[in-house]
């Protein structure tokens, strides 16, 4: 199981995957936006998205849990 967390304060611009989706290492899970920059958050391991903790438009803090991949 791997937890994907935010590296910085950001706005959730796009949620690319849904719970239950199978992902490969390097797939984009969500796209954050901070300081006029889009920052794709990638899966670091292959697996299934068992939990997705953000929605488009959310403002999240550094360390905020974005997704759990199993």
């Amino acid at each position: 199981m791997s937890e994907v967390r935010a590296e910085m304060v950001a706005n959730v611009w796009k949620v690319v995957v849904a719970e239950g989706d199978a992902v490969e290492d390097g797939d984009t899970l969500v796209i954050l936006e901070s300081m006029k920059m889009e920052i794709p958050v990638l899966a670091e391991d292959p697996g299934t998205v068992v939990s997705l903790k953000v929605a488009e438009g959310d403002v999240i803090q550094e360390g905020h849990l974005i997704a759990v991949i199993e």
Partner: peptide, 13 residues
Amino acid sequence: YAEDPRRFLPSPG
């Protein structure tokens, strides 16, 4: 810029 000097990713705070 408020960004890390390696990858140049934003760093508010």
